[in-house]
Design a protein around this nucleic acid. Structure first.
Lengths: 140, 140
DNA sequence: CACCTACTTTAGAATAATTATAAAGTAGTT
DNA sequence: AACTACTTTATAATTATTCTAAAGTAGGTG
């Protein structure tokens, strides 16, 4: 018997409306990612480990990559690069900035940073977005 | 006979004063990186290819990685991550920002961006640096 | 419902960037 | 000239990610 509850409906709709078939794996991953209060930062490897450690039937690595890319393309995830050259994803897709604190990533709400001066885009180009990273270190 | 000119002296001193033995490979790489007017952005792979294509005696990949890391640790290079998860290095070590334009990186002088508002660092932490990336796209 | 087809998932191989290893070479000191 | 610690090198190993091609499934269609 297939599990199904009213939570799933939300994610099935979310997937469908993005042109993605709501397969079991995609629904499970969506539920894991989006069914939470706080925004969530993760690498694909971390996502895979957290989910699969709780599951008897594992989801394959390729599916995690496929699904995360699909969700990103659909605009449900934001991607950014960490120092150590791995892709990190963020369930907070609103425009915002980040603290980087030794591998840990903390969101900064967009309105916490405002600019006095910004450069013009080179000729023929325009600004797509502005992203600020504030690197932290320990006091003293 | 060992090649030696007054340019080399500069880089030998630069290496020595950073606690790095001025080996031939390191001097050559330093000369290639720092003996130019404009600042230079590169990945290790690019550096290796540009230098080795002109050389009969090739420098090994590991040495390029070792030397770039050593120069970075000594504060002569800045590192940043590209979208495609490769490390990019910058010979401009002064505080500054970047335009990212489809893989191409363009420096933005520090004084071209000023802040009206910046968030406070979390308790026990302080701000190490603030880095802005302005992503560009084509007009229209 | 039975079937069809395009989209998905999967295990495993392939790739790319980087790091580790350990043997041979070299700088700088004695 | 000899010594020793630091470097370089080729090669293997590792890590993150993508590719491949075969097996599975969603969502029509009749």
């Amino acid at each position: 018997m297939r599990k199904m509850n009213n939570k799933n409906k939300t994610f099935i709709d979310k997937l469908r409306s993005s042109g993605l078939r709501p397969t079991n794996q995609r629904v499970e991953i969506s539920k894991f990612l989006f069914n939470r209060k706080k925004t969530f930062h993760f690498t694909v490897e971390e996502l895979k480990n957290s989910m699969n450690s709780k599951r008897s039937k594992k989801i394959s690595t390729a599916t995690f990559y496929n699904t995360v890319h699909a969700l990103k393309s659909a605009g449900h995830l934001k991607e950014f690069s960490l120092e150590n050259n791995t892709s990190c994803y963020d369930t907070n897709i609103t425009s915002h900035h980040h603290f980087f604190d030794d591998g840990k990533v903390i969101d900064i709400k967009s309105d916490k940073i405002t600019f006095q001066k910004l450069p013009e885009a080179p000729k023929g180009k325009k600004i797509k977005n502005v992203e600020v990273v504030i690197r932290l270190e320990n006091n003293n």
